[in-house]
Design a protein around this nucleic acid. Structure first.
Length: 811
RNA sequence: GCCCGGGUGGCGAAACCGGUAAACGCGACGGACUUAAAAUCCGUUGCCCUCAAGGGCUUGUGGGUUCGAGUCCCACCCCGGGCACCA
């Protein structure tokens, strides 16, 4: 049990921070700004230890940077639209709004209990009309710029959540949220044209040098730039043709067949009226029925011959055209030239269906594999023979271009962002379909388009809003005639793609935000969140920021200057989560150890980027540390004496200065665990000092202890503030300056000189830091132990790096 | 298959530029205080041989570079993550 009344102290200081508006900020050009944000949470009202880890990091930074003299903006808001609230509401029979708005105060209280401080005057919630009005406004801006469009296409459908999903929300063929097998449906949906920004999104990754490499790599992979060629293939005996995309134009002479994706629009025409028509159509139908997951898990490639041939432009010879589901409609042109000699997939297909295989790259002599995808000279390739792969690619592309068959192109894996959802609890899309004018946007002055209350929120394949005639039937803003409202709502990732702009000016009812305020705060100096958003939120947010930049509203092209993705908290071998049933609720720990011990343990548990395993014992350790600090502060660990300063006293102070240096550097490089360790060491030093024979000199102890408290302020704020006040430091530690170390005090004048023989430590000496090389070597050679290892002969070689090491190589 | 991380005591980990491997914490063991326990305080704690003095070994495995390697290079094994019938 702690030596102090945790509950009273926590309550007291949480009230003080609130009342004194300690962390409420405005733009202040005289101070450097620090904009510090944690990815805004869904207000579940159920924080567990895993969540607290992030909140602790962000709060530590807020408090630390404030003490370092920064004007720190650390706001908080709620990702309050979306399926969790809607599903919970359906289950409990309440309105999603009621459900959500009941949880927000619970969540705020949980954050308060941790001692996390925010500028609450800037709180926002995406489900409030004041917020989603600007979602809708943003949508209309994208529409005007041609970046929002509606199109019918095969889309990902989650049968459980009863809505479509963006590509980013499908993981291995399963719904990212609920793990259902994703089906495909042909539906008209709304998209944002993120592909138009593919190149900028890729190129600007190189500016993000304070992002984790792995997140940048994940985005790079997701955007998926590839270089190749696109060219036209004539279908023999018809006037039909189709485009293919390849990254290996150099292998064109080896094309022995062509493949169309089952969804390819040409398939129907190719076989119409032929005797394979029904066979091909059956295959296509089968393929469409299968989910991507099923298609991918089939070991064997399947396909069917269309009876048609295409002309290989390189050889002028006809090659059979197949339909096969290993070719995807969504990538490239949905049609390929198949080169079994150089592509394993094509090899597999060719051997199964008895198609010719021609090698066009010479494999090494000892080659025993099937398709050869490596480097080598071109063979069987006419004018390309003898060229290496890169030369042959270039030559083929210029040949294609000069002959008018096609051209070199860049292809992207990234698809447009599907943003419409067939659910209730999201921002309604502000569009109508007029009987006469077609798609017409709602005028901005009529925003927001509000949710009507509906009887039944349960999803039924289309938005519940579609069941409300008063909502659906409206007049066309353009012609006044009859029109129907769009009933789909927006993906909640639209809400979260710009909320950090809104924090800068959260109550603006005239515009989405004041660009001047945004200019002061943006970009975020620190953004903290889970790596699970690497290609979801973080990609969408970068895209929307670039759109806002192009509109002249954002001062930056990249919103997040520094990104930190924390590791997970693991218990019983799994990520702590409600669905796994392994959550550790903080309540018991708050009561027993207090918020500060929890915070310290969250910091101390391991490197912030790594996954960590929750341990009850760990909290006991940090709690004990806090107790020791407390007892030293209130005079229970030893008495102070007034006496002249000795060398030993100075050494204690030096240790304190070294700790300041270590802790400051550790926090700056996000090494919170070692920062805590350094403070534990200082606390141990002070404890020994109090218990030393000479006793602790009052002035020295108080100075060193004061440094310790100030450093503890951002980490264990309640206890540190209370002790700061008790020991006469002042009434508000949070607004004190972070201590600075004196470079003179940090210097050591005596260090350990290690003497090695053949690289093995044989002796050690305490020496002056400025010891000369000669003196160090002399000392080393004078050691009896060293001599016993050297034998009679003088060392063959002497390496001296004074004052740290002398290594003697025996002769 | 390709691309990123990572592998160090009984456990969580530290070692920032190639220079004493294991800081700090947990656990364990011993001691002080106590009638006793808890709490607290003091000490020991990588492994092996040894009464000891002392010695040997040790950062996934095997090689290499270097006076010196947890750290750099090569090959491999294992774990985690990303991408992947992407032409």
């Amino acid at each position: 049990m702690p030596a102090f009344d945790i509950a009273a102290i926590e309550q007291k200081w949480q009230d003080q921070w609130d009342k004194q508006k300690t962390f409420v900020v405005t733009e202040d050009p005289t101070r450097p700004k620090f904009y510090n944000v944690q990815m805004y949470p869904y207000p579940s009202g159920e924080l567990h230890m895993g969540h607290l880890r992030n909140y602790t990091y962000v709060d530590l930074l807020t408090r630390y940077k404030r003490m370092r003299g920064y004007n720190v903006l650390s706001p908080m808001g709620w990702d309050s639209f979306g399926l969790p609230a809607e599903n919970a509401a359906i289950k409990t029979g309440t309105h999603p709004r009621e459900f959500t708005e009941a949880k927000i105060p619970v969540m705020k209280d949980q954050l308060r209990r941790l001692g996390a401080v925010y500028d609450w005057t800037r709180e926002l919630a995406s489900h409030s009309p004041e917020y989603y009005r600007w979602d809708q406004w943003l949508f209309l801006q994208l529409w005007e710029r041609g970046l929002a469009y509606k199109k019918k296409a095969a889309v990902n459908w989650c049968p459980k959540d009863q809505t479509v999903l963006a590509n980013e929300q499908v993981v291995d063929g399963l719904c990212e949220r609920c793990d259902s097998v994703v089906e495909r449906r042909e539906l008209a949906q709304w998209y944002f044209k993120i592909t138009e920004y593919a190149e900028r999104l890729l190129d600007d990754l190189s500016q993000l040098d304070e992002w984790p490499d792995r997140v940048r790599t994940m985005q790079e992979n997701w955007i998926g730039r590839s270089e190749g060629a696109r060219f036209d293939m004539q279908v023999a005996d018809t006037d039909l043709s189709f485009d293919v995309y390849t990254t290996r134009p150099d292998t064109m002479f080896g094309m022995t067949f062509a493949v169309l994706a089952p969804e390819h629009p040409l398939v129907e025409q190719l076989v119409a009226g032929t005797d394979v028509e029904s066979e091909v159509n059956d295959y296509v139908k089968q393929a469409l029925l299968h989910s991507d997951l099923e298609r991918m898990s089939e070991a064997d490639k399947t396909g069917v011959f269309t009876g048609r041939h295409a002309i290989n432009p390189a050889t002028g010879k006809p090659v059979p055209i197949y339909v096969a589901d290993y070719v995807l409609m969504g990538y490239g042109t949905g049609a390929i030239m198949a080169v079994p000699g150089q592509d394993q997939r094509d090899w597999d297909f060719a051997t199964k269906y008895g198609i010719d295989i021609v090698r066009t790259v010479q494999p090494p002599e000892d080659w025993e594999g099937e398709a050869f995808t490596g480097e080598g000279p071109a063979i069987n390739s006419g004018f390309l023979d003898g060229l290496d792969v890169d030369e042959a690619k270039a030559k083929t592309i210029s040949w294609l271009e000069s002959e008018g068959y096609g051209e070199g192109t860049v292809n992207w894996r990234l698809r447009d962002w599907l943003i419409s959802r067939q659910r209730y609890w999201g921002s309604p899309i502000p569009m109508v379909t007029c009987d006469d004018c077609g798609l017409v946007p709602i005028p901005v002055e009529d925003l927001p388009v509000l949710h009507p209350d509906v009887e039944d929120y349960a999803p039924q394949g289309e938005s519940p809003l579609a069941a409300v005639p008063e909502f659906v039937n409206t007049t066309c803003p353009k012609c006044g005639g009859h029109a129907k409202r769009e009933t789909d709502t927006m993906d909640t990732f639209v809400d979260s793609s710009w909320y950090y702009f809104r924090y800068c000016d959260p109550h603006n009812s005239e515009q989405i935000f004041d660009p001047e305020k945004v200019k002061y705060w943006m970009p975020l100096d620190q953004y903290v969140g889970g790596v699970e958003h690497a290609v979801l939120h973080l990609l969408y947010a970068r895209f929307i920021t670039k759109v806002l930049f192009d509109m002249g509203l954002s001062p930056v092209q990249e919103p997040f200057a520094r990104l930190f993705t924390q590791g997970m908290l693991v218990k019983d071998g799994a990520k702590m989560s409600k669905s796994k049933g392994n959550v550790v609720s903080p309540d018991h720990y708050y009561d027993r150890y207090g918020a500060d011990a929890i915070r310290l343990y969250e910091l101390f548990i391991g490197p912030p980027t790594d996954d960590a395993i929750w341990s009850d014992r760990g909290v006991e350790g940090t709690s004990r540390f806090l107790d020791r600090v407390w007892r030293m502060g209130v005079g229970e660990s030893g008495d102070l004496v007034d006496r002249p300063e000795t060398d030993d006293d100075v050494e204690v102070l030096r240790e304190a200065h070294r700790t300041i240096e270590r802790v400051t550097n550790d926090i700056d490089r996000f090494s919170f665990n070692t920062a805590v360790a350094a403070m534990m060491e200082l606390s141990n030093t002070l404890m020994s000092y109090l218990r030393s024979d000479a006793g602790a000199r009052r002035e020295t102890f108080e100075e060193a202890y004061g440094y310790l408290l100030r450093m503890l302020g951002p980490m264990a704020p309640h206890v540190a503030h209370e002790l700061w006040e008790i020991t006469g430091g002042g009434s508000m530690l949070a607004t004190e300056a972070w201590p600075e170390w004196d470079p003179e005090m940090v210097k050591r004048d005596v260090v350990t000189l290690v003497v090695q023989v053949n690289g093995k430590v044989r002796d050690k000496f305490e020496v002056a830091v400025d010891i000369s090389e000669e003196a160090a070597v002399e000392l080393a050679l004078g050691s009896e132990r060293v001599q016993s290892f050297l034998g009679d002969a003088p060392p063959r070689k002497v390496i001296a790096k004074p004052p740290n090491i002398v290594n003697l190589v025996a002769g």
